[in-house]
Design a protein around this nucleic acid. Structure first.
Lengths: 363, 363
DNA sequence: TATTTTCGCTTAATCATTTAAGCTTAGAAT
DNA sequence: ATTCTAAGCTTAAATGATTAAGCGAAAATA
């Protein structure tokens, strides 16, 4: 026969044990645990932690007590539970062509600062310019419930992007734009910068300026080409355009191909490279072939780089306004995320600056 | 008077309406929704989706039916709920000194590939070499429940890192190690590479080799210095060490300071730069001052870079095995994450290669 | 005195999963 | 005929927050 006393004893023991046990493992503090120790409800704790104490008419005394306890025990509410409930993850998805590229890495660094200041973390990934991969990435990011997207789109990504927007998800594109959809974009003025740079060459006496570019249908590549063409047409000097296949597999061939191109066109007295990447190959080739950059051969490059500043002779370049672009990018996205209901696409086309160096100084 | 029939009618209507309404919005598919349409329980759906159908004795017929439905409707279970329940986020936290630095950006790019192949996403952040920030970042990542950490530690980060390990969280350090704690590390052999590079200079006739470094207590910086010293002591040639204050605020001064240092030590016939960053400043200065790199002044740099390859004359450098390091890094972490219970610290010290170029070829 | 407000909280549903434990039913074994 | 076993599911309790709605007591108003 079990006595009432014994039952009461056992129950008491059990309660004490549970309490002790919790303190022993100390593992998982939760709003519930906090509420229990303070003998109040989880709702109260939640309101206080979210700064809604006043609004919800929680007494100052209790508010202080809770905050003190939370502070002392260094309690942080579980982010996952919060996200599950609210639907907000405070994560931004960054999809670039290649995070290892200094340009994108630099942008990643710049947006990180502002994002973290605003409580956002960034998850990145690289498309390697592969549309299939880009689509996959957008989907994984959707599955992960990221709050906003920064994307350098590949080709044919319009439908995925417009679907994001239709679903009310904030998106800002950069570097490359997508035509035909209403989406925010931050980039530089490729046409104007290219025109200005080419005009600089034209005005400084170069008569046979080659434009070396990629055979790509990307808008910004076309703009760069058109900028160059405008400048040469205006002065009625020949347009000499060399397009390379856009295929990173054949990196090494490009160096040789540029050499061949120059041999076939001996009249060329300046080269305007449409990308950084082509320029590095070209410069390597010219150095090897003993072509004197600056003296005899002018060089201008789209996209500046430490390398061009240090090179002997130094190389003139069009410098993208990376910092301004990054700031505009993340601020536009933050703005979209704050007013997630009404997406008003905005475009920011920032001007680039032309950094004149030795390579365009005749003799 | 309301008839029973009317009540029944209204109730039925309401049920039908609710059903229709759900179908109209079609917003949030969930395991629950799937289960309801297929008239089975959520548990069954969950088991099937997690590949436990056989184990849980779900009939092949039902399994197929569920998979087909899920496939057709492109349903993906909510990752947040999953993470909340299981405690796994499938996110890796990457904490580097600066994501914008080409070296770290390159590592970020390399680990991304393997991480994504294994279902992990990466969230990054930069310490800017600030211990306070580094501690904050570790805490934010903990709050975010990342599954594993890749960290380039700042100074005095030992306690935070050992706490991570005590909590059973997988950590791999890289680039810089932490002494005194049992933690996995992937890095290069700074002492040996530095010794080999310095020896190369010594063996090629340079008699007054300056070592330009940062005044930093970081283990890898000390190793680099010691490697140099071993090489010069062995040949009984003078050790000329110049330490610069480690303060990124004074970037521009460094260029001038290096110039002054060279003026004060006219005997110097070669410079060994302990970092990439110092070298770029130094090369810039030498170019400005008309000092002939290669002829008269040998140059060797720790950490290779596109710039050093393209520079005229090209600059000899110690190339970190970035790809191998990245692979080892992420694979070690993945391994730790798979056996999260038993953390066995491993060290991988990879050898660097010395890339000999024009700058160390006398005359 | 009776009623209404206000205050200061609590209750309980919800978010979307996972998973241990339990419950039918049919067929096999006793 | 009865019990046991196994197949094939389901039930329901977590996971840890947020938040609309509610509730009792005290204070204010009628």
């Amino acid at each position: 026969m079990v006595s009432r006393e014994k039952i009461v004893f056992l129950e008491t023991f059990f309660e004490v044990f549970k309490h002790l046990y919790k303190h022993i493992q100390m593992k998982k503090m939760s709003i519930k645990a906090v509420a229990e120790t303070l003998k109040i409800s989880t709702a109260t704790v939640s309101y206080i932690l979210n700064g809604k104490a006043k609004e919800k008419r929680i007494s100052d005394e209790l508010t202080k007590r809770v905050l003190a306890y939370v502070e002392e025990n260094n309690f942080k509410p579980n982010h996952l539970a919060k996200s599950l409930r609210t639907g907000k993850t405070n994560v931004i998805g960054l999809i670039v062509e290649d995070i290892a590229d200094p340009f994108f890495a630099s942008v990643a660094g710049n947006i990180e600062t502002i994002a973290y200041e605003n409580g956002y973390k960034i998850i990145y990934s690289s498309t390697k310019n592969d549309t299939v991969k880009a689509k996959e990435l957008i989907n994984t990011f959707r599955e992960r419930n990221v709050d906003g997207y920064i994307i350098t789109p590949t080709e044919n990504l319009e439908s995925e992007i417009s679907q994001l927007i239709k679903s009310g998800l904030p998106v800002v594109l950069f570097d490359r734009n997508c035509t035909d959809i209403e989406v925010s974009y931050v980039g530089m003025d490729n046409f104007e910068s290219s025109y200005k740079a080419a005009k600089y060459l034209v005005n400084h006496g170069y008569k046979n300026i080659a434009f070396v570019t990629l055979d790509s249908p990307q808008a910004q590549m076309i703009d760069r080409l058109l900028g160059y063409e405008k400048a040469v047409y205006e002065k009625r000097i020949p347009s000499i355009v060399k397009k390379f296949e856009y295929n990173s597999a054949k990196v090494n061939n490009i160096t040789n191909d540029i050499g061949q191109f120059l041999e076939e066109n001996p009249a060329i007295d300046a080269i305007f490279f449409a990308t950084n990447y082509l320029a590095i190959r070209g410069i390597e080739m010219m150095n090897r072939a003993g072509i004197k950059i600056g003296k005899g051969m002018g060089v201008m490059v789209f996209d500046d780089n430490d390398l061009f500043r240090i090179h002997q002779p130094s190389i003139s370049a069009i410098a993208q306004p990376i910092e301004e672009m990054s700031k505009q990018l993340i601020n536009t996205l933050l703005e979209h995320m704050e007013n997630a209901d009404k997406y008003l696409a905005k475009e920011y086309i920032l001007p680039a600056s032309i950094v004149v160096r030795d390579s365009t100084t005749k003799i």
